[in-house]
Amino acid sequence: MCTYLTVRANVEGSVKGPTGPWVRAREAIVYFDHPSHALAEHTVNVDFPVPGAQNGERVALELTAQAARDLIAAMTAVLDSAPVTLTGLRLGQPIGE
C-alpha cells in the first residue's frame, strides 16, 4: 500500500497559492505517500485545507524525506535565531513540545 501514518495538526497562520489570495491556515494534514507532482516515489505531503472550502481546495506541499528533514532543520534554525521574546519559544525547545 502506498500510504502510512497521517497526522493532523492544529496550526495558526496563513497560506497562499500561486494565484492568491491569502487564506487562514487552521489545520495541517501531514502524511508520507505517493506525490501528485514531485519527482519521487514517496514524499512528505502537507495539506493546508482552505477553511470552509466546498470542493477540496487546499494549499499543498510535497517534499522528499530528506528535503522535509532539511526544512525542519531550517525552520528550527530560524526560530532559534530569533529573540525568545518574539517567538515565545524556549531556545532549543524540542520539536513537538
Binding site: T3, T6, S36, H37, D47, N55, G56, E57, R58, A60
Partner: peptide
C-alpha cells in the same frame, strides 16, 4: 465533485 483529481484524493484521504 468538481475538484482536480489530486484535490479530490486529498479530501477522500482525510
Amino acid at each position: 465533485p468538481t475538484a482536480s483529481p489530486d484535490d479530490a484524493a486529498a479530501v477522500a484521504r482525510a
